[in-house]
Simulated assay, not measured.
Amino acid sequence: MPSDARLLLLDRDEVQSLLLPDDVLEAVREAFVLHSHGEGRVFPVVREPLVTGGVFGIKSGDVQAQGLLGFKAAGFWPDNRRLGGAPHQATIMLIDPATGRPVCLLDGNAVTTMRTGAAGGLGLQQLARADSTSACVFGTGVQARVQLSFALRLLPALVEVRYATVDGQRDAAFEAQFAHRCDILPARDRNAAVSESDIVITATPGAGALFDTQAVQPGTHLNCVGADTKGKRELPEGLLERVRLFVDDQAQARQIGETQWAADMPCIELGDLLTGKARADRHPTDITVFDMTGLALQDLTVARLLHQRAGAAGVGSSIPWAW
């Protein structure tokens, strides 16, 4: 058997140095399009609680025509904060589909963060009202920051942001990151902030409803990120029955996303909007929701981009990997 194969390793800093928002946006768009055309497969998700208090998951898939195969092993370990680490942990592996040999192993934290932000941005482009000027963001962590960053990047009319923290306190660092791009202040009242916003972004651990159903006004669009496991939710009971629902993957959203709380609701996949298989035809008074559970294909298209870019730039550590 061949013994001269090599495995490329990309650590956190190397991955971050190679990630560019516009390139990630295009890679994520490609993932949605491949999914819509049935050219990219998404395999059943593993998402299981651990006795340690963490949640472990595997997302995997392939694009057979492109020779793209791999998985992301990831999850949420809340006790990591006490240890000085990030609670979300992810590792991505690309595999040669012809042989099963691993070709690239890379840190998946930054990939997960940015590809999810890019997916949220595409959702806003497709579903939010074009005249949207105000947003309410729930959460100020890594995912809330990237969601807002892509929102401001892709919606130039967005100028006013209100945010809500878990303890109701001001987050000076969060404000400082965006103060030069918008008018940003903490939300004094969550329901009032929602009712006064054109866009609502929920990026929390998904521990429960963040606001009341009646706070959501006609014409609002909501990007929902935090529900990614059975039992999680961010939206209040009864809201999904009032909205037009859009998802990244129907089966996955009904299993672990916000859609699990209204699994019989009709929904449209975002990829079908991008390929023209479906149309949003938003009316000014429609309430729209994009339930984001994260596609394995997004991780793979971005990881392939990084693998190619690292090879061209001579970035990463190449180690022997006999097979």
Rank of each mutant, 00 (worst) to 15 (best):
T113M: 10
P21D: 12
H180N: 13
D62N: 15
T220F: 03
A65K: 15
R162Y: 02
R12P: 00
E237Q: 14
P266S: 09
A176K: 09
D299V: 02
L18V: 12
D79V: 09
W261R: 04
V63N: 10
G38Y: 06
I268K: 12
A151Q: 11
K277A: 15
T112A: 13
Q143G: 00
G141W: 02
L270W: 01
P87A: 13
E237T: 15
R82K: 15
P186S: 01
G311M: 03
A151T: 07
L25D: 04
Q147F: 02
S197W: 03
R181H: 12
G75L: 05
R81Y: 07
L270F: 02
S3D: 11
P320K: 07
M114Q: 15
D281F: 08
R188P: 10
V216W: 00
V33D: 05
G61D: 11
I268N: 02
Q260G: 05
A86E: 14
I319K: 12
V159N: 14
T52C: 14
G38W: 10
G314R: 05
L152A: 08
L300V: 03
G85V: 04
A151D: 10
L235G: 04
G70T: 10
I58E: 06
R162V: 05
L9I: 13
A31I: 09
D13W: 09
G139L: 08
K59V: 09
L155M: 15
A31S: 15
Q126Y: 03
A313V: 00
V15C: 13
A207H: 10
D4P: 00
E39V: 06
G54S: 11
M265P: 00
R12V: 05
H307S: 11
V194C: 07
A322F: 12
R12L: 02
V28Y: 01
G108H: 06
E48M: 13
M93Q: 12
A98T: 12
D22M: 08
A173R: 13
V243E: 05
D4M: 08
D228Y: 12
